[in-house]
Computed example of a mutant assay.
Amino acid sequence: MESTITEAFNNLITKLQGWLNAVIQNIPNLILAIVVMVASYFIATYIKKLVLKLVSHKVKQQSIANMIAKISAVVIVMAGLFLSLGILNLSKMLTSLLAGAGVAGLAIGLALQGTLSNTFAGIVISFRKRIQIGNWVETSGYSGEVIDVNLKEFVLKEADNHIVIIPNKTILENPLKNYSLANKMRVFINCGVGYESDLEQVKDLTQKTIANAFSDVKSAEDVEFYYTEFGDSSINYLCRFWINTSDLLEKKRVKTKAIIEIKKAYDKAGINIPFPIRTLEFNNKLSFDEAILDNQYSNN
């Protein structure tokens, strides 16, 4: 029994001496690995500040800029970690870490597929110069001002002050109309006048009225006027002109003012804008029996 304990104790001493010798032999590598890790930390801090400064000039969303800066810092630290493990000749541990990171990354990616899609879509949208905060856009059936683009969602404020939150992935995969990119917008007005109207007079009066109402319209010739059809009760026309604005709400205000001014001008000139009328006649001379027969005939 005593010999067994002595043998075990000697084995332990031998093992500890082997570890001590291994540590002493690898002290230079250990010091170098520590230096690499510390250097990678400071380099990552500097890279984070530099990336944040550069990205902030391109991306107005601070949350996305911070995320990109943090990702760059993590990449630098991970590179320092793998380099340190290589210096310590821990290739098996390095391989295990890489394999574990791959499996964990796959599991996390499958679990957070929707979230990651929105995150990367938000990053892509933030770098698009044609989509900026403050733009008036229309997408996915909604129209409003862009008030925020973060890592998860695209936020619009509609004309009625309602807030619409749309996933970034939806914005990236669907068409988007940006009204703020152009500095000019065209206003369309559809109307009709009575068949008894002087069509040349209607055309000239409409063009002059719009030209006098808006400073953006230099002359009556800048107002396009086209008769489109002979309607049921009116001769219909299309009138359109350009205004210097990129605001959709301003376009609606201009259209409202144009309709008001055209109505005033037509009333003053005696031009009729027809509307559907239903006429009921009560002077029918048919007898009661004939009316019943007619009703039964129509039902059959």
Rank of each mutant, 00 (worst) to 15 (best):
T4N: 08
T6I: 14
T6M: 11
A8G: 08
F9W: 13
T14C: 04
Q17F: 12
W19R: 07
L20F: 13
Q25W: 13
Q25G: 15
N26Q: 09
I27N: 06
L30E: 01
I31S: 08
I31T: 07
I31P: 00
A33C: 06
A39Y: 03
A39H: 05
F42N: 12
I43F: 13
A44E: 04
T45S: 15
I47L: 08
K48T: 07
L52T: 12
L52N: 14
K53Y: 12
K58I: 10
V59W: 02
Q61I: 04
I64R: 00
I68K: 00
V74Y: 04
V74K: 02
V75F: 09
V75W: 03
I76P: 02
I76Q: 10
G86A: 12
N89H: 12
N89T: 06
T95Y: 15
S96R: 12
S96G: 13
L97D: 01
L98G: 06
A101W: 14
G105K: 01
G105A: 03
L106D: 02
A107C: 07
L110A: 11
A111Q: 05
L112P: 01
G114I: 13
T115G: 02
L116K: 00
S117I: 00
V124K: 11
V124P: 00
F127C: 03
I133S: 06
I133Q: 14
E138M: 11
T139P: 04
G141W: 05
Y142I: 05
G144T: 03
V149M: 03
V149G: 00
K152M: 10
L156W: 03
K157W: 05
D160N: 15
H162E: 14
I166R: 00
K169V: 08
T170I: 09
N178S: 12
Y179S: 01
S180R: 00
L181G: 01
A182I: 04
N183R: 05
N183C: 02
M185V: 04
I189C: 07
G194Y: 01
Y195Q: 04
D198I: 08
D198H: 10
Q201D: 15
N212A: 13
A213R: 09
F214S: 01
D216M: 02
D216P: 05
V223S: 01
E224C: 11
Y226L: 07
E229R: 13
D232C: 04
D232I: 03
S233R: 10
S234K: 03
S234P: 01
I235P: 01
N236W: 07
L238E: 06
C239I: 05
C239A: 10
R240W: 12
F241T: 01
S246M: 03
D247F: 11
L249A: 10
E250R: 09
R253G: 06
V254M: 01
K255C: 04
T256G: 10
K257Y: 09
I260D: 15
I262D: 03
K263A: 08
K268Q: 11
A269K: 10
I271S: 02
I273W: 05
I273C: 08
A291K: 15
I292M: 10
D294E: 15
Y297S: 15
S298T: 09
